[in-house]
Amino acid sequence: MLKNINLTVSLDFKSLCSVSSLGGSSYQPPLQLLQAELQSEVNSGAISSSDQSALSSAQTDINSALRGGGSGGSTGSL
């Protein structure tokens, strides 16, 4: 059964770029923040665990493409 999934992510650019005065130990790359948000949505039941893998893979592919690494090999669309 296919279903459409809409995942809205709101990120504060300043929070993504800020580095703590304690040597940057609190910095998390944007991909890690997105994956943590995805896990939170799965834990809350808003996203099914069966959809988590596809969404996580899409996040990784997008991150790779933005870094100039091309596609991670996924094809097709949701």
Rank of each mutant, 00 (worst) to 15 (best):
L31D: 07
T8Y: 01
L55S: 01
S49T: 13
S71N: 08
G23R: 08
G69R: 01
G70Y: 09
S56I: 03
Q52A: 14
S10I: 10
S20K: 03
D61K: 01
L66N: 09
P29L: 10
G23E: 12
D61V: 09
G68N: 00
E41M: 02
L31T: 06
L38F: 11
V9A: 05
G23D: 12
A36C: 12
E37G: 15
D51C: 13
L16P: 02
L2P: 04
S21I: 13
N6Q: 05
L7C: 01
T60Q: 09
C17N: 10
N4H: 04
S26L: 15
S18H: 07
L11D: 02
V9Y: 06
S10N: 11
I47Q: 00
K3D: 02
T75M: 06
Q28K: 15
E41Y: 00
S48Y: 04
D51T: 06
S48T: 12
Q59V: 08
G69V: 01
K14Y: 11
N6A: 04
T75G: 12
D12R: 07
E41H: 00
Q32R: 13
Q52E: 14
Q32I: 13
S74L: 14
Q39K: 15
I47A: 00
S26A: 13
F13R: 04
S15A: 13
S25N: 10
Q35K: 15
L55G: 03
S26H: 14
D12Q: 10
Q28P: 03
S25L: 15
G73N: 03
S64D: 08
L38S: 07
I5C: 00
N63K: 03
I62K: 01
L38Y: 06
G69H: 04
S48A: 11
S71T: 14
N63I: 02
G45H: 08
A54S: 04
L55H: 01
S64T: 07
S48W: 09
C17H: 05
S56G: 05
S49Q: 14
K3T: 06
L31Q: 07
V19T: 07
S48V: 03
K3A: 02
L66Q: 08
S74K: 07
S40W: 06
A65C: 06
G76W: 11
G73T: 08
A58I: 12
G76Q: 06
G69D: 06
D51W: 07
R67G: 08
Q59N: 05
G45E: 07
G24K: 06
D12A: 07
D12M: 06
S74P: 02
I62H: 01
T75R: 08
L55A: 03
Q52G: 02
P29K: 11
C17A: 11
S56K: 04
L34Q: 11
S20A: 09
Q32F: 14
S77F: 10
E37K: 15
S50L: 10
I5A: 02
G69S: 05
V42N: 01
S74Q: 10
S25K: 12
Q28L: 15
Q35M: 14
Q32M: 13
T60C: 01
I47R: 00
D12L: 11
L34W: 10
A46N: 15
T75Y: 08
V9R: 02
D12Y: 08
A54M: 09
G70H: 08
S44M: 12
G72P: 00
S21W: 14
S10C: 01
L33K: 15
D12I: 12
R67L: 14
A58L: 13
N4M: 06
L34N: 04
L11S: 03
S25P: 00
